[in-house]
Structure formats: structure tokens, C-alpha cells
Design a protein around this nucleic acid. Structure first.
Length: 810
RNA sequence: GCCGGGAUGGCGGAAUAGGCAGACGCAUCGGACUUAAAAUCCGAUGGUAUUUUAUACCGUGCCGGUUCGAGUCCGGCUCCCGGUACCA
């Protein structure tokens, strides 16, 4: 009796074999073409891995092993995103130093990742909290500073009162902290900013060249939020001042019946009339107090106050009142708008609220509506009316003509605006890369010279956030006080740290050359590996991480140290795995741990089920029962192969065996290429079902070997063992991925469905090479066809080669 | 509100490029093996109708269209999921 499939025995055996033979070590002197398959590196939480985490890692590993078999040298590394709030909050909660917590968690995570059986090259492991790594994070920041892309600015920023730190726009979700869910307030702080807006246009246009899911590209382009329009300058009556507005609708300028400034607009106090002074002052104060959430929740009821001042509409010298309202945001455009209530819904609502006049200036042909007829703003297309010399112009043309006219008079110009804001890059927390800047009384802000990097995080007793807007580092005098690298005088270190996204914005550049102490990376390493060929990770990083990483890469390109402009050629977002309808979490108690499954079924079964569970990009529900199916499949396959060997029931290949075998190669290869891995697994199942029916007659060796080989990226331990049992000395991963022979796929006969008036009536089995005439004749002779055609006349005969016959009868 | 994505048996899901809807798996039912159970193996399994057999009709969220033929294409809806939120 052949021995049973025993994953508990064979899985450790092969993991040991791979390690001893250094099969996953990426060596420098390898002439194979490189292929870079990257997982988004995790932050090592204390909770560890569950089956949901496995999904992306299994997928990238299947792909890496497939590429290996195709003859590539595959770089498939792993590392740790260990700075940042999650790690720090965990450490505070458990009262351990974050560095210690990270160390323990990394070890645990690594052990669990080993279970997957993935071909990670652990020699290239990176850790963002390693000074040898963050040295280069600081180095990149220093270069941004030198290029004027990192700057300091005092401004009201998003502040999380729970995490006690400032946050980037991208980290605020529905007015709440992305990490802890606390309501975000505004806090005026002197902040480090990165000028990501300088790259807005390139970040937008280069999306076109990327092989990424459309929705991710769309999310990024919405986030960047490009809009074309014009800036128009209005004079303020009796003040000698001007206000510039941004509008996407210069064609509606004749309909601008009032103007609105953001409450924070700097000119407000200067233009407010004495009578209005009190009202304006208290409105501004109220507006500043409101949090983002309050501003949103207040059902969009428009509020505002008249300033008492008037502006002159430059196109028709009309006198328009200037109001302030919080529906105009200071940090978009110019913080001021011209209001066209007839053609903008927000302006319409405001005008109705405060009884301001409307003027229709755009109307489609055939319509006659006037201001009084409108119950909502008309925002559609049309021709300009009530617009003097511009009357009759189509709106799109009007935009251009009006802008040109203003430009010629020097009071307006075409303008592009972006929603994207500069990146708030300081955190008032301990656990991050120190920002490598020194404040000198004499020299001002001085960047730490390269030779003094890294600026190490000092060891401290208390790393808890202060909440004052100052980082805990500020309290460590012996660290803060230093000397100026330029004048040698007394100076203080910058005490803010970088956000978690800093290290992850470039870590993928370090794996190709992770131990380089001279440079962040060598040119050869970049040349061989970058850009990343396939990047696998969750869609939750669609904006944050992926946008920041693209920005860093473009900056490094401009710095001349990388040749490419985009870091990730192809992106794949795996779906999440739910249990009981919810995301797995410890608090919900619905976590499925791989440990138990490993003991009962083995790693390869989990790998296979992770793939079989559903289309890889779609969210799915975990099913313990469904799991049994793949476990049975592996047992059946094992038994089939070992029985054939045991009983020596090998035969010469038959035509049918060959056809099915080559059909399997074709299906599995195509489905892999399309990332339809769930259907690739079902192809294996169908094939084994077929072989099981054949086993009494015996099976040829090639059929079994091909099966084991094709399965190897999916179930590497299983395949290695069977490959050995089949008599091979070398690892199955030294083999080549097979190619199918199209000639072997062709059968002698085919089955053709025969329709009458589009309804299937019978099936015709006929020689594959039969002529159209023969086929139609045979089809018409089929008993059920004859029956259904009785008394009818054929008016049309359709034969789609090798697909279908359809007879149209009357 | 706007922008994406989706809806197929009891369930998860298949269906290159308009050509046999429901592959594969789960669950269920029947059978074999067993003293028995588990495991395993074999078979059935979208719905309705007809006594059998087989056949007919219906069936991919809803309504309509194009076509010899529509899950697939076009027009109009409904619901669900994700992103975004006064961005001028």
C-alpha cells in the first residue's frame, strides 16, 4: 500500500531543503532576466497573521514561482514597515519600548510568514526602523530640503486629539483619524511640508502608462483633482484693493451677482465696513471654531455675512456685494469665488437664503427660462445670453473667449487648479525617523550633512506623546542640544519625526541592494530590478502609500539617481477575506488562524483554498466547509499518483491522455496569465477527475509529471515530494514551465449543438474536418431536428465553424 | 449628490471575442464499503409540466431594443458595495 499524504511530514522537509540549497537567495552573478514581484510590506502588529493576510502573500508567491519556472531570476523580498502610530500605540499600550515590541512582533510575524512556504529571500529583509535603513530615508528628505521641496510652514492642520499628532489630508477619512477614528480638529502648528503639488500634473498624466486597476487610477486622479478654469481679478470699490477668484466657468462671468470670500481670507478685515464689523467678526470666529465634522454634518444649510464692501465685475462694471461664507474654503483656489447663482447650485442655495439676485447667462437653444423660473441652478450646456458682445457663443467657446478678453486687459488668465494639497510631513510622536534638520540661531535651518546621517532616535524612558504639539523628543535635552554643522555654534535639533509613510515611500528601492552602506542603492541593482514588475497588496493603499511612493520616485528621478519615473508597472489588489460577514479582527472574535489548519490539513491546502475561494480581486467569505474541498482534492491527487507508481500502471500516452494533458497546460497557463487563479485550481480538479476515470487502464508518465509540475507554484511542498517520488533527483523548481502543443489539442470529432430558430434541439457528433454541407445535411437528419421541422421550410442555414448550427424555419 | 464596481441554482462561483447557462467546489439526497460510524468511492441535483420515457416551456436584478442567436451588445430603471464629499 502506497503511503498516505502527510503534509506535516513533507512540508518542513522541503522548507528545510529550500533553505539549505539557498534556493530563494537572489544572487548577483545570475544571468537570467530579473523579475521583481513585490508584496506590500506589513507593519508587524502584535496580533499576527490570519488567513486573510495569507491571500495576497499566496498570490504573489504563486506568481513568483510561476515566473521562476518560466526562466526568470525572481526577486521576491519581504520586510517591515515598523515605524509609525500602530507600532507606537501598541508599545504604549503594552508598556514596552517600541523598538522591543517591534523586535518581538517581527520574529513572530516572520515565523508565521515562513508557514506560507513562500520563496522570500530573507537575506534582503528590510526594516524601516533600522538606522541603516532610515539613514537613507533621512537622506532623501535632506535632498528634498535642498531642492526646496521640504519646507516649514505655520498653518492650521488636521490634528488627531487621540493620537496627539498632526496628520496629512490623506489620513483623514470622513473627518476622522484614519488610524483611531477620533474626530479631527484643526491646530495651528509650524509644520514640515513636502511639496507634492509640484508633481500634481505628472502624477496625474503618468497614471495612463500604468497597468493598474482602473479604479485605483481613478481614485488617484480624483484625489489629485485637476480642474481647468481661469483666475479673474475684481477691484474692490473704494479700497484700492483687488480680490482674485478662481472659476471653472468664466463663460458665466456676466451672471456673477455677488462674491464670496472664505472667512479666513486675509483681506476680510480690511474691507469690512464699520456697520458690518461686529457681525463679520463673530461669524469668522464661529467658522474657525467649527471642526471639519461639524462643517459637514450641518446639512449644508448655507450661512454667511455681508461685509459691507462691493466689488466691480470687470466684464461689465457691475457692482456686486462681497459676502463671507464657510462654503468657500481658504485652501482651495484663491479662497474667494465669484457667485453665479443661476448656474451653480451652491451659489443658488446661498442666493435664495439671503435674497441675492440671479441672472441667467447660459441657455440652451429652444429654452426661454429667466431667473424667476429657476428652481435650481442650470448647470448644463447652452449658449451665452445677457452677456453683451459674447451673446450667442456656445459655452465651451465662451470660456475661452472670455478668458482671452480678460487676459488681454491684464485682469485674468487661464489657470489650472488641483485638489491635491502639500503633504503634512511632521508628526509630534516619538516612533518615527527624526527629521534631519538643525535649527541654528545664526544660520537658520541647516540640513544635517550626509556624513552625520543617520540622526538616530535617542533611547528614552518616556516616549508617550505630549499632546502639546511638541514631540516627546523635545524633552530630551542632551539630544536636542547640538552644534550647528555650518557655524559650529549652539543649535537645536528638529524634534518632529516623519510619518509612517516615509519609509514605505521608497523601501522597494532598497531590496535590490539592501546592504549597501555607501549609497541607498547601486545603479546596477536598479538597472536589473526596477521598476517593480508586479506589486501585490490591498486596495486600502490606493491613495496614501501609492501616491506617496510615486511622488518619491519622481523626485529621485529628477535628482538623477533613478532612471524610471514610475515605481510599480503592474498593480494587483487582492480582495479581503471576511468571516461571518465582517472583516476578521481579534475584538470581533472571528479570526480564522492558519495554525490549526496547518496541523489538520497542511500549508498547501491553505494555499490552494486561498486561491480557490473566489476571484482574487474580490472580497469573499471564508468557509470551513469549502476548505474541505481542496483538502480532498490534494488527497485524491496524491492517492492517484502514488497508486499508479506503486502498481506500476504506467502506459504509453494515448491520444486522449495527451489531449487532456495539453489542455491542462493551456488552461492553467492562460488562467495564470489572467490572474484567474480560482479557475486555474478548478482546471486541476477537472483534470484529476478525468485521470481518476482513466486510472484502471493506466496512465502515462508525462500526464502525471505535468500535473505535478503545473501544480508546483500552487502547492510547492506537495509537488516537490511527488516529483521526488516520481524519481527525480532535482527540485521541481529547476524545471521549465511546459508549453502546450496546439496540434495535440485537436480531437477527431466534435460536438455541435443544433438549433432551430435559436433553440437547442439536438447535438450532432461529427468528424472535425466535415464540410459545411455535410454538417448541415447531418444536422437536418437528426431525429429531434426532423421532428421539430415537420411541416416547416428552412429559410436560412447558419453554421459557425466548430461552434453551432442554427436552422431558421418557417 | 458625483465617480467607480456589481447583481447568475440552496451556497461560493464558471462561461476566450454574441454561439449548448450553471464548469469546479460546497451542501443535500440516493447507493457501495463497514458489525457500526467516520473517512473513501459511485450516482443524482436550476424551476415547472407530463404516469413512464424523454420532451416541452420558463430561467442570468427589472422594462424595452438589436440579432438567426443575448448572462454577454444598446437604451431606460431598481437595489447592493466601494471611493468622494460645499474643490468654485
Amino acid at each position: 500500500m502506497a503511503r498516505k499524504y502527510n503534509p506535516q511530514e513533507i512540508e518542513p522537509k522541503w522548507q528545510k531543503y529550500w533553505a539549505e540549497k539557498e534556493m530563494h537567495t537572489v544572487k548577483k552573478d545570475d544571468s537570467r532576466p530579473g523579475y521583481y514581484c513585490l508584496d506590500m510590506f506589513p507593519y508587524p502588529s502584535g496580533i499576527g497573521l490570519h488567513v486573510g493576510h495569507w491571500r495576497g502573500y499566496v498570490l504573489s508567491d504563486v506568481w513568483s514561482r510561476y515566473k521562476t519556472l518560466q526562466g526568470y531570476q525572481v526577486l521576491h523580498p519581504m520586510g517591515w514597515d515598523a515605524f509609525g502610530l500602530p507600532a507606537e500605540n501598541y508599545a504604549i499600550q503594552h508598556k514596552v519600548h517600541p523598538a522591543k515590541a517591534v523586535k518581538v512582533n517581527v520574529e513572530n510575524f516572520k515565523r508565521q510568514l515562513h508557514d506560507i512556504g513562500a520563496m522570500y529571500d530573507w537575506n534582503r529583509e528590510v526594516n524601516t526602523t533600522d538606522p541603516e535603513f532610515y539613514k537613507w530615508t533621512q537622506w532623501i528628505f535632506a535632498n528634498m530640503f535642498k531642492k526646496g521641496l521640504a519646507y516649514r510652514k505655520e498653518m492650521p492642520i488636521n490634528w488627531c486629539p487621540d493620537c496627539k499628532t498632526g496628520l496629512a489630508n490623506e489620513e483623514v477619512v470622513n473627518g476622522a483619524c484614519e488610524r483611531c477614528g477620533a474626530e479631527i480638529t484643526k491646530k495651528n502648528l509650524n509644520q514640515w511640508m513636502l511639496k507634492i503639488t509640484a508633481y500634481a500634473e505628472r502624477l496625474l498624466t503618468d497614471l495612463d502608462s500604468l497597468e493598474w486597476p482602473e479604479r485605483v487610477k481613478k481614485m488617484q486622479s480624483n484625489w489629485i483633482g485637476r480642474s481647468e478654469g481661469a483666475e479673474i481679478t475684481f477691484e474692490i470699490e473704494g479700497h484700492g484693493e483687488t480680490v482674485t477668484v478662481f472659476t471653472t466657468r468664466p463663460d458665466t462671468l456676466f451672471g456673477a451677482t455677488y462674491m464670496v470670500l472664505a472667512p479666513e481670507h486675509p483681506i476680510v478685515s480690511a474691507i469690512t465696513s464699520t456697520e458690518q464689523n461686529g457681525a463679520v467678526k463673530s461669524y469668522v470666529e464661529e467658522a474657525l471654531k467649527k471642526s471639519n465634522v461639524e462643517r459637514m454634518i450641518e446639512d449644508k444649510q448655507k450661512t454667511g455675512v455681508f461685509t459691507g464692501a462691493f466689488a466691480i465685475n470687470p466684464i461689465n462694471d457691475g457692482k456686486v456685494p462681497i459676502w463671507i461664507s464657510d462654503y468657500v474654503l481658504m485652501d482651495y483656489g484663491t479662497g474667494a469665488i465669484m457667485s453665479v447663482p443661476a448656474h451653480d447650485q451652491r451659489d443658488f442655495d446661498f442666493a435664495k437664503e439671503f435674497n441675492l439676485p440671479l441672472q441667467v447667462v447660459i441657455r440652451p437653444d429652444g429654452e426661454t427660462f429667466e431667473a424667476d423660473d429657476l428652481t435650481e441652478a442650470y448647470t448644463g450646456p447652452g449658449k451665452m445670453v445677457n452677456s453683451g458682445e459674447f451673446d450667442g457663443l456656445a459655452w465651451e467657446e465662451g470660456k475661452k473667449k472670455v478668458t482671452d478678453s480678460l487676459a488681454s486687459r491684464g485682469i485674468g488668465k487661464a489657470m489650472v487648479n488641483y485638489k491635491l494639497r502639500d503633504w503634512v510631513f511632521s508628526r509630534q510622536r516619538y516612533w518615527g525617523e527624526p527629521i534631519p534638520i538643525i535649527h541654528c540661531e545664526q544660520c537658520g535651518m541647516v540640513v544635517v550633512p550626509d556624513e552625520d546621517l543617520p540622526v538616530r532616535l535617542p533611547d528614552v524612558e518616556s516616549y508617550e506623546p505630549t499632546g502639546t504639539g511638541e514631540s516627546p523628543l523635545a524633552r530630551i535635552e542632551e539630544w536636542v542640544n547640538t552644534t550647528c554643522p555650518e557655524c559650529g555654534g549652539p543649535a537645536k535639533r528638529e524634534t518632529d519625526t516623519m510619518p509612517q509613510w516615509a519609509g514605505s515611500s521608497w523601501y522597494f528601492l532598497r531590496y535590490p541592494d539592501p546592504h549597501n552602506s555607501e549609497k541607498p542603492w547601486s545603479e546596477e541593482a536598479m538597472e536589473k530590478w526596477m521598476p517593480v514588475d508586479l506589486y501585490v497588496g490591498g486596495v486600502e493603499h490606493a491613495i496614501l502609500h501609492l501616491l506617496y511612493a510615486r511622488f518619491f520616485t519622481k523626485f529621485l528621478h529628477d535628482l538623477g539617481i533613478v532612471s524610471f519615473e514610475e515605481p510599480f508597472n503592474r498593480l494587483f489588489n487582492q480582495g479581503m477575506i471576511y468571516k461571518d460577514g465582517a472583516k476578521m479582527s481579534k475584538s470581533k472574535g472571528n479570526v480564522v488562524s492558519p495554525d490549526e489548519l496547518i496541523d489538520r490539513y497542511g500549508r498547501d491546502s491553505i494555499r490552494l483554498y486561498e486561491l480557490f475561494i473566489g476571484p482574487p480581486e474580490v472580497d469573499v467569505e471564508w468557509s470551513d466547509q469549502g476548505f474541505e474541498g481542496v483538502a480532498r482534492f490534494l488527497n485524491r491527487s496524491w492517492n492517484l499518483i502514488t497508486e499508479i507508481i506503486e502498481d506500476d500502471r504506467f502506459i504509453e500516452p494515448t491520444k486522449e491522455l495527451e489531449r487532456e494533458c495539453h489542455g491542462l497546460i493551456k488552461d492553467v497557463t492562460e488562467r495564470l496569465e489572467d490572474m484567474k487563479l480560482n479557475t486555474a485550481v478548478s482546471a486541476f480538479m477537472s483534470y484529476v477527475n478525468f485521470l481518476n476515470k482513466e486510472k484502471e487502464n493506466g496512465i502515462d508518465r508525462a500526464s502525471l509529471e505535468t500535473l505535478v509540475l503545473l501544480l508546483s507554484p500552487f502547492t510547492p511542498h506537495f509537488s516537490e515530494e511527488l516529483w521526488q517520488i516520481l524519481g527525480h533527483e532535482e527540485s521541481v523548481f529547476k524545471e521549465k514551465w511546459p508549453e502546450y502543443d496546439p496540434k495535440k489539442l485537436v480531437a477527431d470529432e466534435m460536438e455541435l449543438p443544433v438549433q432551430i430558430n435559436g433553440k437547442i434541439r439536438d447535438t450532432l457528433t461529427i468528424d472535425i474536418n466535415a464540410s459545411k454541407e455535410d454538417i448541415l445535411a447531418a444536422a437536418k437528419a437528426l431525429p429531434n431536428v426532423v421532428r421539430n421541422m415537420e411541416g416547416m421550410r428552412v429559410v436560412k442555414e447558419i453554421y459557425v465553424p466548430k461552434k453551432i448550427v442554427n436552422l431558421v424555419v418557417k
